[in-house]
Design a protein around this nucleic acid. Structure first.
Lengths: 246, 246
DNA sequence: GGTCGCTGTTGATGCAGGTCAACGATTCGG
DNA sequence: CCGAATCGTTGACCTGCATCAACAGCGACC
């Protein structure tokens, strides 16, 4: 089902989790020794390469994932090919919360990475035995739902520039959570992916990026990383802050 | 905090839940006698009138609600007044899942109705004691998240006609779940509210409604209810079904 | 039952962002 | 290091929906 995905061979036992850099960002971060050990016993540790498909929209929903390294794109398609990206996942994020019998979305790796993969039936059983994990997952779901509402506001009511600025603010916050200073922002996705996340076209994303660059709000370092030069102005453009001078 | 909300005076004890028509649609539907009794002990049974505010965006998030009668609008605002409605709630729906320290949305009654209101701290405690309730809530959150993803696809990538058709399909499904046949669809909200839910203007909603009417896909019964005359054509217009003849 | 205010409809016009097209920059395999 | 393929940028033009405007229908409340 997962195609070329490799299951890591070695490494059984709790020391895998002990050395996991994503743990402090993950739902499993709430577990103690014994809980971690049991969760880990149910996990396949998989590695994936750029472009690899983790989940395909419409397939039976058999697995859940906890991303431990790399970035993942989650998207939905219309029959004529129009695409909406509903989220970008990074280490610590959980994939499969919004899942019924079949996946309602596809998930594809932006670059190389890794994840803990669980069979859904196993995970269900574990949840029943570990209420603190279920509690953490509900917290996570609440955050995702809030983020989804924010994204609805963005897609339904914001202008192209407001969308792009909001997106960059979000990336910056994520970078800070991952340990950065929030000024240096990695852009692991392409312009087309940004466009499909913001409900725009690549051309519109490109034009507005150029405008931000020209105004000195951001500076492009490489094609896949930028620096935020005027954070307050960016916040204002995102429609997230009361009026301020420009 | 809730202003004019009235707390129902009489009726303590489990028979309140026993007679609750929303129970089979609610998270509390998973509870047995004893659980219901304890949940009910923590609930204020409130009644609300048309236009009444249940939750105000930005206020401290002190309460959670289970809607037992009537319809509720959930929305977010930008500082200049642009509004995005992120959902319409009906009996059985839970209000407050996506809540941190402060409400990130406002909730307002479309018409008269009622709800069970819980103090958040109480509800948290109850959840810890009743894992089956937490489990039901997680299920609910997963469904809401899936619905949110569908709405993102709608707002980001669908045309005005596709949005309206999708909306009507959704209302029809909800009507069926509530016990109707799915052809007769109540429209408890105004055109402006539909527009703010679909990321459109009232004019565009009106024009496309007229088009559906003219094509014989729907028939307006009153201003606030309609009948779906050609369900398959509506599904097709919503972009939810492969091509079919029109 | 009249009239006032609000909701909804329809028409005319404008514009933000989409589409189409060309070209420059980056990446990657060999 | 080279060349092909992909990705990103920029420009010209177009269109779907927003905006602006006028009016019609409906309901609420004297």
């Amino acid at each position: 089902m997962i195609g070329t995905t490799t299951v890591c061979a070695g490494a059984g036992g709790a020391e895998v989790c002990g050395g996991c850099s994503a743990r402090r960002l993950s739902v499993c971060g709430v577990l103690e020794q014994e809980g971690l050990r049991r969760l880990n016993a149910a996990a396949d540790h998989i590695a994936f390469r750029a472009g690899e498909v983790l989940v395909r929209e419409g397939d039976p929903a058999t697995h859940l994932f906890n991303i431990t390294a790399g970035d993942v794109r989650v998207h939905k398609l219309l029959s004529d090919g129009r695409r909406q990206i509903v989220g970008f996942l990074s280490p610590g994020d959980f994939l499969g919360l919004a899942t019924g019998d079949r996946y309602a979305f596809s998930a594809e790796a932006l670059g190389p990475g890794s994840a803990c993969r669980f069979r859904k039936v196993d995970y269900r059983k574990i949840l029943r035995e570990m209420p603190e994990l279920e509690h953490a997952l509900l917290d996570r779901a609440a955050h995702e739902l809030k983020a989804a509402h924010d994204q609805m506001l963005l897609l339904g009511r914001k202008t192209a520039m407001e969308r792009l600025a909001s997106f960059l603010v979000g990336l910056s916050e994520r970078a800070r959570r991952a340990g950065g200073d929030g000024r240096l922002v990695p852009l692991p996705m392409t312009r087309a992916e940004i466009a499909d996340y913001l409900g725009l076209t690549t051309e519109t994303v490109s034009r507005n990026t150029t405008r931000l660059k020209t105004r000195g709000v951001i500076r492009l370092l490489t094609m896949h990383s930028l620096s935020i030069e005027r954070p307050s102005e960016l916040l204002q453009l995102a429609g997230l802050e009361a009026e301020a001078a420009g």
